[in-house]
Write a protein that binds this DNA or RNA. Structure first.
Lengths: 163, 163
DNA sequence: GTACCGAGTGAGAACGAGTCTCAGTATCAC
DNA sequence: GTGATACTGAGACTCGTTCTCACTCGGTAC
């Protein structure tokens, strides 16, 4: 849309794009909606979701799925880069693009896939949470490759809702 | 649980684990539930979700989030490996572990994160779909890093539901 | 044998994220 | 001005998942 396509440049779309470009914390769609409403109180959630999908489909934003059932996050930094996600606070930080191009060629050769891209997310504990000695898993971001544990409570649920 | 922990080895948990070990197609929780019901018709979905979370937390299964709002998938292959996901049919295939260990050390050094693991998913078109000349995006698996497109319909929705 | 306790279960309500429908509005081309 | 079409907002809806709660089951002490 906007400057690259024949789609219309509406105030709502401008607002969503501006929020996304101003944000460096990889907001979820709900967070984008909340921020856009500060400047455009009448905007609907459907419009925000539609606009985010549009931005992703036109290459003006990236959609990140940080796993563990967490909501999708959006990133206006469309240069190829990867992320490190904190398992304690859920924060995602940008990383340089560390996957060698040769690796994708090799994967394509071995798997027979026509590789179009990849998602690489490192998991760990961010410096802030390390400083706090935090290791409490955050709701919705469960460690997926965790070591076998004895005597866990059945569902390692961090309760998503209050009720 | 089972042979590694002091948790109980119940028939329901056995059934879930057996379904997961027999499956090589990375089933979703709903698919696991459906398959388990063939042998244990009285099992509840909550039990399946609880058991899957338990298997993940004890390291006996991996949870894969394939992005695009798709449901989490599960994998009984707990050896470190990565996946290639078909953007057309949604199939995920296992790949060898291609990320050099030195890369994680480097990421940890540069980001300050205490890296505990990573998720790497390649996206592309599987050989079968290439043979069919298919490029139709599958429900729930939208291309996330797609090239800028002019004149897309606003929401590239492949309708998830019939209604 | 039985009473107790805690882990585990099943049913279904509830929730959050995201999508769909639809009527109304804005914008564009003519 | 008119018609076509893109876009919007509201809200109902679906889906995946989790929570609650009453119940069952198995282990253990007596």
């Amino acid at each position: 849309m906007t400057d690259q396509t024949d789609l219309r440049l509406t105030p709502q779309r401008m607002a969503v794009l501006e929020v996304l470009r101003a944000a460096h914390d990889h907001p979820t769609a709900a967070e984008v909606y909340e921020r856009v409403r500060r400047t455009s109180p009448r905007i609907g959630s459907a419009t925000v979701y539609r606009t985010l999908a549009l931005l992703v489909s036109t290459g003006q934003a990236l959609e990140l799925s940080l796993g563990g059932g967490a909501a999708a996050r959006y990133d206006a930094n469309t240069c190829r880069h990867d992320h490190a996600v904190c398992e304690s606070c859920g924060r995602a930080v940008d990383l340089d693009h560390p996957v060698p191009d040769g690796m994708m060629t090799e994967i394509a050769r071995r798997s027979g896939f026509a590789i179009t891209g990849y998602d690489l997310q490192f998991r760990g504990i961010c410096p802030d949470c390390q400083a706090q000695g935090a290791a409490r898993p955050r709701s919705g971001v469960r460690p997926a490759h965790s070591d076998p544990l004895a005597g866990n409570t059945p569902a390692g649920n961090t309760h998503r809702k209050g009720a």
